[in-house]
Amino acid sequence: MSTAQPSALEFRTAVEADVPELVTLVESAYRGDASRAGWTTEADYLEGQRTDPDGVRAVINTPDSVLIVVERSGELVACCQLEHRGDHAYFGMFAVRPGLQGAGLGKEILAEAERRAREEWGAKEMRMTVVNVREELIAYYVRRGYRRTGEFSPFPYGDQRFGVPLRDDLAFELLVKSL
């Protein structure tokens, strides 16, 4: 029986050449049947795309924003976005390959994102928005120290860049964590 540990995660900033693979990763983590292999699927609430090449390029090219590529042994396993917004950072576009979800990668990636926001930007808190009906995902973030604010913003119904809603009660809830 082998006791070898998986190799360490490596973090780097996304570049244009990463766009196709990042789109595939994000889509696989959230939409369609492939996403059902993990626990972060939105397939029961939303159809259609989660992102597209233009959306990923926009994150890469936004000032005060970074799209972090997470690799293990040279293989893309996850990504997340950090955006510096004054005294806080916004965390988004978080995706872990479905077959690797539930193994602690997300916790490690989130901790690295929080560290970077605090140390590189001096951010006092991290903010994110989560679809309100994603109770299991919200509970995951609460266990990581995020608090529910009770602040909601409307879901962009009619804008297919965010998918095609299968329900009429979707909104985004703001979660916040002091860094």
Rank of each mutant, 00 (worst) to 15 (best):
A4W: 12
A4C: 04
Q5D: 08
Q5R: 05
P6C: 01
P6T: 06
A8C: 01
A8Q: 06
A8W: 04
L9P: 06
L9T: 10
E10W: 05
R12T: 06
R12E: 05
R12V: 03
R12W: 03
A14I: 04
A14R: 11
V15F: 10
E16L: 10
A17K: 15
D18K: 12
V19P: 04
V19I: 14
V19T: 12
P20W: 08
V23L: 06
V23C: 07
V23R: 03
T24M: 12
T24H: 14
L25G: 11
L25Y: 11
V26M: 06
V26E: 07
E27V: 02
E27L: 04
E27H: 05
E27Q: 11
S28H: 00
S28R: 01
A29R: 02
A29T: 02
Y30A: 00
Y30L: 00
R31N: 00
R31M: 02
R31E: 00
A34N: 05
S35T: 01
S35W: 01
R36F: 08
G38D: 08
T40P: 01
T41V: 09
T41A: 10
T41K: 12
T41Y: 12
T41N: 14
D44F: 03
Y45D: 06
Y45A: 04
Y45R: 10
L46A: 02
G48F: 08
Q49L: 11
Q49C: 09
Q49R: 15
R50K: 13
T51C: 02
D52E: 13
D52G: 13
D52F: 09
D52R: 06
D54G: 14
G55L: 10
G55W: 15
G55D: 13
V56T: 08
V56I: 13
A58I: 03
V59S: 05
V59E: 09
I60C: 03
N61E: 14
T62M: 07
T62S: 05
T62Y: 09
T62P: 06
T62A: 12
P63K: 13
P63I: 07
D64Y: 07
D64Q: 05
S65T: 15
S65L: 10
V66L: 10
L67R: 15
L67W: 14
L67A: 11
